[in-house]
Amino acid sequence: MADLSITYLVLAHESVSRVTRLVDKLLLEDTNGQVIVHYDKKSGKAPYERLSDYYANEPRCHVLLNRVRCGWGQWSLVEATLRMLRYAQASYKTDYYYLLSEYCYPTQPLSALKEHLKKHRGTNFIECENSRWIKGGIREDRYLYRHFLNKRKYPRLHRWTYKWQKWLGLKRKLPDGLTIRFGSQWWCLTQEVIEHVLVLEPYYQSFFRWVWIPDECFFSSLVFSKSEVNSNLLTFYQFNVSGAAVYLDSIVSNKYFFYRKRR
């Protein structure tokens, strides 16, 4: 069977050493893999330049120049991912795209991941769940009302604008043909599905731009019903009661190929 190619998309915003630790591991163990890094524009010019200089002579690592300032819970995180995907689409083709953060790290050799993807070639690994997937806070109201502000930066204004819309009955209608589904953003998707998402994105961006935490529903919603989906994710993560990813002390199963936030 022909070898399988993976492009690893890395969302980064903090530690250059943490990013290089992950990327070096990916490049070493997957000798035909490509890596694209989006380093949050608001995190400063100096660390971005250190990262760019570090991989300046590595043709399989692309530190994205066209960056966006990211805000937690906002469209900018989806836009950062889309920019990495558009860059890849304009440069080459790949079998799979695997979205990671700088806090992710392999639990197994990447050769095991590639064998798993070969065995399930064509399957998309992404959660496409209903709103019960959300453990705390608002559910349907995440997308039925517009969320203009960064909740962490402006918590009172964020809450006030949401309640104001509810009082005035400004509930939104879903675009035709769209079913909202939720799931972790740490997915692994095929070239075919990514092409499908990039075709649909311009039609749905105006809706998802004001969704609260769109990175947990944008890709899941657009992938839903498109093709075979396996909701058994390849990256292990765990949320606390507040909905934040927490650090892990151990891995609970060898069915995962990456963990998120392990000490």
Rank of each mutant, 00 (worst) to 15 (best):
L200V: 05
S231E: 13
Q185Y: 01
E192A: 14
D215F: 05
L198I: 14
P214S: 05
H196Y: 06
N230T: 03
R209I: 07
Y204A: 09
W212I: 02
V211P: 03
S221W: 01
N240C: 13
L189E: 04
L222S: 00
E192F: 03
E195S: 15
R209V: 04
Q185G: 13
N240M: 05
Y203A: 15
V241K: 14
Q238C: 03
W187D: 02
K226P: 02
Y237K: 04
N240D: 08
L189P: 03
F218Q: 01
F219K: 06
L234K: 03
S231M: 06
V223E: 00
Y204D: 12
L222E: 04
Q185M: 02
F218Y: 03
S206M: 03
C217T: 07
N230C: 14
N240T: 04
V199K: 15
Q191R: 14
V193N: 03
L198K: 04
S220V: 02
V223W: 00
I213R: 10
Y204E: 13
E201R: 11
C188R: 14
F207S: 07
H196C: 08
L233E: 05
W212K: 07
W186Q: 13
V229W: 05
E192S: 12
T190L: 05
I213T: 03
V193T: 08
V199W: 06
V241T: 15
Y237G: 08
V229C: 10
L222A: 10
Q185V: 12
F236C: 01
W212F: 11
N232C: 08
D215E: 11
E195M: 07
W210I: 05
E195I: 02
S221E: 11
V197N: 06
S227L: 04
Y203T: 14
D215A: 09
V211A: 15
N232W: 08
E195P: 07
V211N: 06
W187S: 09
Y237L: 09
